[in-house]
Design a protein around this nucleic acid. Structure first.
Lengths: 341, 341
DNA sequence: ACCCGAGAATCCTACGTATCACTGTCGTGC
DNA sequence: GCACGACAGTGATACGTAGGATTCTCGGGT
């Protein structure tokens, strides 16, 4: 059996100091590029450290600096794997240029989520958190406030804050989508909206309704569904039973849109001839579906980069009076939308 | 401007000790359930700690124990968001019952990946790593060996190791898929395989060929593609030009299968009447496609759970002589496969 | 009256880095 | 000739927890 964990640092700063014939302090100064070290001494120390293969201990540095050099992201499962993969990549692309790392925590329900936040916030496990999809009465904001933890919220939080908030303007994408449908002659447009406890889902549903009214269209035909294929299918079946039948359905995400198209086909109806369909997310498969899915593309990678930058500033003590606008989603027209039969 | 980061521990173990009128050591013993503390004293200490809201400092604990209480996972982007989301969830479900957290690092190329591993391995940032998709001459195994870091490999590593290795037996799923096609009368089955530098992709391609030969079928019609939609489409176009044309195509992942179906339609051919299609992954959208996609389901969540358990044991010093079998993938028949016209 | 031992509690140092406060040295200007 | 400041370098301690070594306490046996 090999030696169990609890691996000590192989070569310590004191080893380097002894080898170079100077004090630990000077080694630290030399390697952190601080003033007060003669250039020749610095070169000697750096060379010694390199030859000994010394890397500063992350743990000791974190304790000494009273910093975790880590930020946290809590993901909900089952969830939009798509958006979060991109967000993750964007966060990383910024963090890895700093000293920071990203800790992910995956949860599957409200209680688990609160536990996760408590675990991360307490004990100084992280210096900051990325919060996504704020809900009404979201307990997370109270938790982080009490813990005095920095955060960045992707989406408007339920309470005012001086922490950074990243917001998207979805009105343009929604206006484009509805205009596209209206121009083709659609008069009955139904909506399968996301969970209305998620603040952004409610806002998006109301935006769609507002734009429908601006086109003098009925805005009353909408249902709530929880982003799963089953819910999307069920909602679609209900909408197809309405009288008169909608000629177009807009969905809160692509997965529900795909399940909806499947339900439409099972009814013996065609997409787009009988019912046009629009999704939200622009999954990798969307352009290759049969028919290719019209949808709204988001910018998770850019969101991640912006969120990481803001979070690092917040950790640094910066305050934010106003929400920060992020890259807006854009409508992508494909063949799942056509003139109604 | 609020106070910048570098947040100290609000209440320390010494505060609790003073308030309870005992030494720091006794507080530590009492809260870590160690012997040598009178029961009444323990109760008093626990009550005091609770009333003061004390949580041990993660940073100090990590330094003192010479442990990071963290394991790392490096993801490649663009990649199978699907499998990794599940893997992440599985890893977490085990880690969060221990003291461990998961650090993710997202990279987009070979150099970035090596950097990422170096960052994590050096300085004791993590106690162990999850390595996925081993490649031939994979530099990561050398890196972790040199760093003396524990790891679990999801897939057979290129070099022998005493660290745990999780392996899947794909032969059953592949045999089922080919048997299903053969039983329906398919004689010309082509393959769009994954990147052959990934060891598992090569093995899977050869497995398909072996099973084809067992059915006395031609095994020479295969192409390599890099898991993207564009590559899947291009490979499909080439295969459709072959003479005689294949009546079925099996793909290394669902995304390429979807793109392939799209290419088949563009040729004026039908799925499954003219060409049957089988994917790999069982994406959430697969059952709802038009037609529903036959594919092979993996078990990322269970893989994640198993990997986490093994990694924690490896960190504990356990050695592994044999690879550990994981939940095998299973073939799922859907309507994208039918009797050839 | 004295010794012994088990259990209870404390003392002190390790963990490894960073940094504050300080000492020593040398050149410069008056 | 002396005061002073800039610069180079060192010593000691904080960071907060854990735990081995040690001391203390107290009851029981001889």
């Amino acid at each position: 059996m090999r030696e169990a964990a609890g691996r000590r640092q192989a070569v310590r700063i004191s080893d380097v100091a002894r080898a170079a014939g100077v004090s630990k302090t000077l080694v630290s100064y030399a390697l952190n590029d601080r003033a007060g070290v003669k250039e020749s001494t610095r070169a000697h120390i750096v060379a010694t450290a390199r030859s000994m293969g010394w890397t500063p201990s992350f743990r000791a540095r974190a304790l000494s600096a009273s910093r975790a050099y880590t930020v946290g992201l809590v993901l909900r499962i089952p969830a939009e794997g798509h958006y979060f993969t991109g967000l993750l990549a964007g966060l990383q692309s910024v963090l890895s240029t700093s000293q920071y790392s990203l800790l992910t925590e995956v949860v599957d329900g409200d209680e688990a989520e609160e536990d996760a936040y408590r675990r991360l916030a307490l004990g100084g496990r992280v210096d900051g958190l990325v919060l996504t999809d704020p809900r009404h009465d979201d307990p997370r904001f109270r938790l982080v406030r009490e813990a005095g933890l920095a955060f960045v919220s992707v989406g408007r939080p339920p309470e005012p804050t001086t922490m950074p908030v990243l917001i998207h303007d979805e009105s343009r994408a929604i206006a484009d989508a509805v205009a596209h449908l209206a121009a083709l002659g659609h008069r009955r447009i139904a909506q399968v909206a996301g969970p209305q406890t998620v603040a952004a889902a409610g806002r998006r549903r109301r935006l769609y309704q507002k734009v429908l009214r601006e086109h003098d269209l009925d805005d009353t035909s909408w249902l709530e569904a929880d982003h799963t294929a089953a819910a999307g299918r069920a909602a679609t079946v209900k909408l197809l039973d309405e009288e008169p039948r909608p000629t177009a359905i807009v969905y809160a995400n692509d997965l529900m849109a795909v399940a909806g198209m499947s339900a439409i086909h099972e009814r013996g109806l065609r997409v787009p001839a009988d019912v046009s369909v629009i999704g939200w997310d622009d999954l990798a498969v969307a352009p290759h579906l049969n028919p290719p899915l019209s949808t709204v593309g988001r910018h998770p990678f850019e969101d991640g980069r912006a969120a990481a930058r803001l979070l690092l500033e917040a950790i640094d003590g910066q305050e934010f009076a106003e929400p920060v606008p992020a890259a807006d989603p854009t409508f992508v027209a494909r063949d799942s939308v056509a003139r109604p039969a």
